[in-house]
């Protein structure tokens, strides 16, 4: 499917999702509560068959955190960008997509480690790179005078 068809299809699955036809890929923004169900549908529908989680990125938007999923279908070759935002900054929580894409386990641990976004139903949510004495370094308000030398 091309970008427009993809957008329309997602719209039919989840009418309240925001669909933008980006320069590269169709970008779909959904509420954090709808994320898991939409992802599951996108993975399992014959028309989309997005079985390859290419990339999972956590972003600090200031008020809240965003997680961006780049999905690809190995059967149809199309790609889609799925975006969601946590509802708050203090206790950011999202639903894990580990049960849909096994590779998400490591990605989500990384996001948890560096941004502090918790993922519900994650089988093994521990810090990945850093130990618990660290804050969440990818947050924009992270201060570390010793290790970060800014010019």
């Amino acid at each position: 499917m091309d970008k427009t068809q993809l957008g329309d299809f997602v719209k039919s699955l989840k009418p309240d999702a925001t669909v933008i036809e980006g320069k590269q890929y169709t970008e779909v923004t959904v509420a954090d509560t709808d994320l898991h169900s939409l992802a599951k549908k996108l993975r399992e529908s014959e028309e989309t068959w997005l079985d390859f989680l290419v990339c999972l990125t956590g972003v600090d938007y200031g008020d809240n955190f965003g997680v961006i999923y780049h999905l690809k279908s190995t059967k149809h070759g199309h790609m889609i960008v799925l975006k969601t935002r946590t509802s708050e900054r203090e206790k950011p929580v999202l639903n894990s997509v580990c049960d849909i894409w096994k590779g998400a386990e490591f990605h989500e641990r990384e996001v948890f480690d560096l941004l502090g976004v918790k993922f519900n139903n994650h089988p093994d949510l521990r810090r990945l790179f850093l130990d618990s004495s660290w804050g969440f370094p990818l947050r924009k308000d992270y201060v570390d005078d010793i290790n970060i030398v800014s010019k």
């Binding site: 990339c55 990125t57 972003v59 590779g103 490591f106």
Partner: peptide, 25 residues
């Protein structure tokens, strides 16, 4: 994956590194 806010510095850069993902298996 570069998210730019129009400045000379990127707002967020993400590297999806192959080894990191391959380690998961």
């Amino acid at each position: 994956f570069i998210i730019s806010d129009g400045n000379k510095n990127p707002y967020r850069v993400k590297f999806r590194s192959p080894n990191f993902v391959n380690l998961g298996v």
